[in-house]
């Protein structure tokens, strides 16, 4: 899969939250650890609900967790051409 237009800071946020493990985050968000791994690697973009849940767990805003890069958005770039 190509580079995703959405990147994230989950690894850093977990580190700042007393080295929260992927399993702990998975348990708190109600998904599997495999899904957390996929999100961290940028292999899966979570639903809006899950994204907000992750931000809520770290007590931060959504934009602090996820970043959108329009230049990497293939669909947007295709429509602009």
């Amino acid at each position: 899969m190509g580079k995703s237009s959405i990147s994230n800071n989950i690894r850093r946020l977990r580190f700042n939250a007393n080295e929260m493990t992927q399993q702990e985050l998975a348990d708190k968000t109600g998904v599997s650890r495999q899904t957390i791994v996929a999100i961290e690697k940028g292999n899966y973009s979570p639903s809006l609900e899950l994204a907000f849940r992750i931000a809520y767990i770290f007590q931060t805003s959504l934009s602090e967790v996820f970043m959108y890069d329009p230049d990497k958005d293939k669909l947007r770039n295709k429509k602009l051409k």
Binding site: G30, V31, Q34, T35, A38, P46
Partner: peptide
């Protein structure tokens, strides 16, 4: 896991 999440 006993249930599927959104990615599954």
């Amino acid at each position: 896991p006993t249930s599927e999440d959104e990615m599954d």
